[in-house]
């Protein structure tokens, strides 16, 4: 295989994978052979090693038992709060549905039952006052003058 002496990105990507232990045995052998021949790649490798050391400074301390327990309780608290929020939302929806149902039924009664009962009121027998007025109005005019 022809080896590149330059810092070709193709080689650097392979070098990066080799550096991470993520290439096949065949690839690893080729990269090692390339490294013998390429001081630039060796320098690049050194740079990445320093970078890895630098990044290791950011490794956090493991969470302690007490801290994990606190987080677990917070999570359960959050879960309970979420369940509560959902059940409250459901209750509000139920209430809204009940109000709508009552309003709908009221409207239906108003348009059907109440309207027909009003019609019956008009069809009822005339009261005594109505009959007296009717009788008064039907009297002949001359008789009224005589009276």
């Amino acid at each position: 295989m022809k080896k590149s002496k330059g810092n070709h990105p193709h080689w650097e990507r392979r070098l990066s994978a080799w550096f991470d232990g993520e290439c096949s045995d065949l690839d690893a052998a080729e990269v090692r052979a390339h490294l013998l021949d390429s001081p630039q790649s060796r320098a690049k490798l050194q740079e990445w090693r320093r970078l890895r050391e630098d990044l290791s400074l950011l490794q956090p301390a493991a969470a302690g038992e007490e801290q994990l327990e606190r987080m677990r309780l917070r999570f359960e608290d959050g879960l309970a709060e979420e369940v509560f929020q959902v059940s409250r939302a459901l209750r509000q929806w139920n209430l809204a549905a009940a109000i709508l149902l009552v309003l709908g039924l009221g409207f239906w009664f108003r348009t059907h039952y109440w309207a027909s009962s009003s019609h019956q009121a008009y069809a009822s027998e005339p009261s005594e006052v109505d009959m007296a007025i009717q009788e008064l109005l039907s009297r002949p005019t001359g008789r009224l003058e005589q009276d």
């Binding site: 309780l73 309970a80 709060e81 509560f84």
Partner: peptide, 12 residues
């Protein structure tokens, strides 16, 4: 009020 988390019957 939301229920407290410390009840033994509750939890994840």
């Amino acid at each position: 009020q939301p229920p407290p988390h410390s009840s033994p019957t509750q939890g994840a």
